[in-house]
């Protein structure tokens, strides 16, 4: 490589090469001047710096997101307290007693900003979605990488990409207009729109992620391992269960973590299909409101600088932190796998 970089590093005096190159004639001298001239180096330097700025911009954007979410979130504590994010002691004139209420009720006489029902909703949607898409996704990944012929894969993979390309608002609309009534008839649920309908919709968006990344992980497993297993007399499926899947387990778990992060952050599907009632519940067939849906439903109607506005940024900051750490851990697991497979 250093040979190629001679043109950019004018370490010696510009006149120095002249003597050396004299026998080669005037034209080569011009060429030498051409590639070592100062003006040229300036544009090289400028381009490198411009590209550096473009590269650094994504770091900058992540930092700005971090700063602006948390800056606004911190303002919440001017009036609110940390305990408010869990629940509030509220005097109930009907029961004539004070009780601890975990509610998100931003527009009321005593506004309540408990994150518990929102967290409840988010996990009640994201966990079933991740479970469904993990089971289906690993199955598909095994089929694509271990069984399907190259031709089948060439057709199936782009089809999966097309599934991933469907706008989430379309899936939300489909769940709301078609699937929700269908599901209600099967399960006889009280609410037409519930966490389960939402999680099925979210599973559609996380499935392509899990399939693609799990398949990559399975294909990264060296062929020699499979050959060794087959040579020892193991059948195809014994090889898959006993050799390929265990070797790819870190890559697969990274994909599941990433899928879970996506499921937590999914917005449009849950706004449209989960019913948007902020309840503290463990019932998957009840209406819920996720953190994302809460922001989407309320940010449009708040005044900037109100306690409600800052509370929504608190929700956003919690959401960002959760997904940030999920992404980070998925990356750490992946890096570990890459390092191990390189050995």
């Amino acid at each position: 490589m250093p040979i190629f970089q001679d043109a950019d590093s004018p370490k010696e005096d510009q006149n120095a090469p002249r003597e050396v190159l004299l026998p080669l004639g005037e034209s080569s001298l011009d060429f030498q001047r051409f590639i070592t001239s100062k003006k040229f180096h300036f544009s090289e330097w400028l381009m490198e710096k411009l590209l550096l700025i473009a590269g650094v911009s994504s770091v900058l954007i992540i930092l700005l997101i971090f700063i602006f979410l948390f800056k606004e979130a911190v303002f919440f504590f001017q009036t609110g307290r940390l305990l408010d994010l869990i629940g509030k002691w509220v005097y109930d004139p009907w029961d004539e007693k004070t009780s601890f209420k975990m509610m998100w009720q931003a527009v009321s006489e005593i506004p309540k900003y408990s994150l518990i029902p929102l967290l409840c909703g988010s996990f009640l949607v994201a966990i079933p979605a991740t479970i469904i898409s993990t089971i289906l996704g690993i199955g598909s990944a095994v089929y694509l990488s271990e069984i399907a012929s190259a031709k089948t894969r060439e057709i199936l993979k782009p089809t999966l990409e097309l599934l991933a390309g469907i706008p989430t608002v379309v899936i939300g609309f489909f769940m709301l207009a078609v699937a929700a009534s269908f599901l209600q008839e099967i399960f006889h649920t009280q609410f037409r729109l519930n966490a389960f309908a939402g999680s099925l919709g979210v599973a559609i968006t996380t499935l392509p992620i899990i399939v693609t990344l799990s398949e990559d992980a399975l294909r990264a497993v060296p062929q020699e391992l499979r050959n060794a297993s087959l040579a020892l007399g193991a059948s195809k499926w014994q090889t898959i269960w006993g050799t390929a899947l265990p070797a790819a387990v870190s890559g697969i778990s990274a994909s599941v973590i990433l899928g879970f992060g996506r499921a937590l952050g999914e917005t449009m599907i849950v706004v449209m299909a989960t019913g948007n009632a902020a309840l503290v519940t463990g019932n998957i067939f009840s209406s819920v409101r996720t953190m994302t849906a809460n922001i989407a439903a309320e940010l449009g109607s708040v005044d900037r600088g109100s306690e409600h506005y800052y509370a929504l940024f608190v929700v956003g900051a919690v959401l960002f932190t959760l997904t940030f750490f999920l992404n980070l851990s998925s990356e750490i697991v992946l890096n570990k796998m890459r390092r191990r497979l390189r050995m």
Partner: peptide, 9 residues
């Protein structure tokens, strides 16, 4: 991996 609604915020 940042949720799209966070981009909105």
């Amino acid at each position: 991996g940042v949720p799209s609604i966070v981009f909105g915020l």
